[in-house]
Write a protein that binds this DNA or RNA. Sequence first.
DNA 1: TCTGGGGTCCTAGGACCC
DNA 2: TCTGGGGTCCTAGGACCC
Length: 385
Amino acid sequence: MSARRQRVIVHVDMDAFYASVEQRDDPSLVGKPVIIGGRERRGVVCTASYEARPFGVHSAMPMSRATSLCPQAIVLPPRLDYYGEISSQIMDALHTFSPLVEPLSLDEAFLDMTGAERIFGAPDAIAQAIKEEIRERTRLSASVGIAKNKFLAKLASDLDKPDGVTWIPFGDERAFIAPLPLRKLWGVGPKTGERLARLGFRTIGDIAAADLAMLIEQLGEGQARHLRALAQAEDDRPVEPGRERKSVGSEVTLSDDLRGLDQVLPVLRRQCERVAEHLRRAGLLARGLRVKLRYTVGFRLVTRQRALAHPADDSASLFAAARELLASLPLHEPIRLVGAAGFDLEQRRASEQLDLFGAPPTRSNLEHAVDAIRARFGDKIGFGD
DNA sequence: TCTGGGGTCCTAGGACCC
DNA sequence: TCTGGGGTCCTAGGACCC
């Protein structure tokens, strides 16, 4: 790569994605406040439609608070598998513009459109074309940001929502972002934001002009250099189309606290089953397993992890490891969350692919066979261990 | 009002090896 | 009898993002 090639990076961000999908599919919801999220005792908001936002409702807010702010809101549970299908349609649309598409989540992606001006025109024309293609395929609206790097493109897409286009012109970037609050820096959250505020920093420009040695002392070498580079509108990270997943997890927050091995174990087993199912569906094996508990008192999160004896995608192997890890954790205090995750993932080799009749009767092959039967005859079939 | 569930990345400290 | 310095790997925790 030549040292100073001007890149054209596009960030596409769907508008209130989950809520917009539900409104699209049920016209009676159009124009009304819609909240997607869990209705249970400890549920939170995933997405609020634009009609709900003026009431102060936003994502990650406890649902109890959301419904007290906006009692007339229509609350719907998320349909993640369905949103995933629509996400694929969106990513397909984006691939008609560039092979360099990096999804960030179901509703967001980067595109590297460097050199595409001759085909698609100026940056703002590219953005319009992308929005139209998505709308044609999905009847949903997106906001688009264009700039010379990922950070600026992502920042830009957020500046004119919903249904907007923002192009940060090449050359003026630093002046353009300098007056914005430093929380707009990608990677500055509540903690770092508070920390920097206490030091007297308020804007991105303040960080850009900060003394590096002092910043390093406060944030550590890595974060200090990274954030100051971003504040100076510099970000060399490439758009990476082929990023592979590094972990597969499943966790659940219980409406009522758990206490003791007898209560925790069945929930942990269920999470291991879900992780194993995900692994098998993705054709992956995990070489490590992590267990996660959140204690109610102090909202304290603890994790324990270890390598597996053999790479595994069956619930029995995962659960055996999980159970051992659990032994090192206190179970007498009230527990609100139980989770499991597989990591150090590898591709299941072709020779290990399911052969219902020829395969040796390993636990993995048994569970793959059950998957196949379920896929064919439905989900009502259970099996013991 | 009381804090989801899916992830990624970074850091610090200890073990271990040479 | 006291004790190095560097490198790597692993674990746990924490911040952050959508």
